[in-house]
Design a protein around this nucleic acid. Structure first.
Lengths: 152, 152
DNA sequence: TGCCAATAATCGTTATAACGCTTATTCTTG
DNA sequence: CAAGAATAAGCGTTATAACGATTATTGGCA
């Protein structure tokens, strides 16, 4: 039995509330970012790859490494990078030592792109979360980390 | 100034940490749900629609209403419902009063589907979050609500 | 009443995501 | 050192997402 319903709808399990809340919140914030990136013809995944490559420096990264660092997994790195190569924001070169791996690097054009986007993206995030005090954001960031710290 | 770098990487802005943490956590949990639903040939969006329609009762809902209640927005309700109608989990009928709107209802087959999935989904969510005590989950759920309570 | 804006849904098209399979190369080990 | 497992990336194909434009219907109002 569900006890007396305090609200119209019976409360869903706590874990489900967290799951749905996560999906909704992530989607809400992503919408804004998508709009911003679309003005430059970039998808969130492409933007993410560019930032990863910038962080990796001139040595570049293999497909696998990029995939591992991405915020959301992408099951087809090859064609994601194909499109980015066509736009001239990355280059690819097969490694001499291990000819299985292809090293991808961000081009100067790609870095320009990122530079133009850095401030607008920061501003957007600040606007999206300006109604929450820093202390709560810190708590939230910590709890989100705990979610992903699941064993196994 | 950034003070002394306590870790190798300089800390990113708090808002960005929250944004990325949200995307990563949402994606991580969604992966599990996708795997589970795929065993029944359902996408998360389709599952979401079924649950919305079950909650709405026998009166059904219009496309717009379904779209508004979805966890993540879907820009093409028509074809999402097309596919579900073909699978026999929903029916559609144009309203007499206002012939612009199409009412969608879940079929008994669709309800069966849901019934079989209810417990596995609950179990999955519990497993995904079992490493976090209830008090933290409550705090997290509350903070996630606050994120979406942004003015305008 | 007749015209126009607003609303609901649909559709044509292109791009991207997703799935599994294949190829190329390297590592392992008997 | 040869055969087979393991690893990295790529590809063929199908399904879905995304974007705009379009149709059908209704409500507002001069």
């Amino acid at each position: 039995m569900d006890a007396r319903p305090r609200a119209a709808r019976p409360a869903s399990p706590l874990e489900e509330r967290v799951f749905v809340g996560l999906q909704r919140s992530a989607d809400l914030l992503l919408q804004g970012v998508e709009r911003l990136l679309k003005s430059q013809g970039l998808s969130p995944a492409q933007y993410n790859v560019l930032r990863i490559l910038r962080g990796a420096g001139p040595g570049g990264l293999s497909c696998r490494e990029i995939g591992q660092r991405m915020v959301t997994r992408d099951p087809d790195m090859t064609r994601l990078l194909d499109r980015m190569e066509q736009r001239g924001v990355v280059t690819r070169a097969r490694q001499k030592a291990d000819r299985r791996v292809v090293t991808t690097r961000v081009t100067s054009g790609g870095l320009e792109f990122l530079k133009r986007l850095d401030q607008p993206v920061r501003d957007l995030h600040r606007r999206q979360l300006r109604h929450m005090p820093a202390a709560r954001l810190k708590t939230l960031a910590r709890l989100l980390g705990e979610v992903r710290a699941a064993p196994e």
